[in-house]
Amino acid sequence: MSAAAPKKDGLYDCRDSFAATIEALAEADSRIVTVVSDSVGSSKLGGFRNKFPDRMVNVGIAEQTLVAVGAGLANGGKVPFVSAASCFITGRALEQVKADIAYSNVNVKLIGQSSGVAYGELGPTHHSIEDLAWLRLFNNLKLIVPADPWQTAEAIKAAAAYDGPVFVRVSRMAVPALERPEGAKFEIGVAETLLEGTDVTIIANGTMVHRAIAAARTLAAEGVSARVVNMATVNPLDEAVIAAAAETGAIVTVEEHSVRGGLGGAVAEVVISTNPVPMRILGFPGFVPTGSAEWLFDNFGLNEPGIADAVRQTIARKK
């Protein structure tokens, strides 16, 4: 049950990894069911439906019911993977996520599909750049933002193995498979350092990790040693890795999310109360204008030159 095949040019749609992994897990564990809200195609769950037609519950376009039905299924001994567009499974059903899933502390896996600005031109109603800020408030809800197909598969496996509420944010944006040392493992709450560096630390997750690595390589050519951390778990945070990042004297966070309350906010909360160092939070300022996802990334500096620039400016603020 490794990652699914690349789409094109060596780039992957992480939803394919989600789909392949959940099908394999369901093969081995009959408690696993999926719950959708007219979101079979957008969740890439057509294959699951064909293999396990009785183990998919489609509630129709009704996200509040979607999430609450998941809670009920868990009560009945199932392990539900509840999947819909990230904007709707979070924003529309926020109180169900809070009361029925997190506060009730039930064994439900929420899958936020096509998160961030993947829906591009469909606009801010369909973007999900607030989801992490909202969900981060529920202290016991694990939040995972995988960066590539391997990590998506590993996050889904880890979510299934963990007994409690988990949210996994799955992107539809084309991403490369990241290079990792042999035997790399994924563990909820443990960040991975993908590049070592001593002058500054770039902390990224999701679709921004490969861009952060590209920026670090550009900076290396200028003699700047940038560490790159993939902080896939936003709750709980890997505080040891953040403490080590502060030791480099400057931190830049990068996320496909609002600059308010997401990964950057979470890291800043730790940094400010332990070892304050100059920090910069990269993301979207709020509702964005019409444009494709790639256009939005470029326009808001969420690309290799934009990240590199932010790093240079942040290093300049070091005391």
Partner: peptide, 13 residues
């Protein structure tokens, strides 16, 4: 329609 910065977003504003 749906071009960058267009007033004609995919959903009405």
């Amino acid at each position: 329609y749906m071009e960058p910065l267009s007033k004609l977003n995919g959903h009405p504003n």
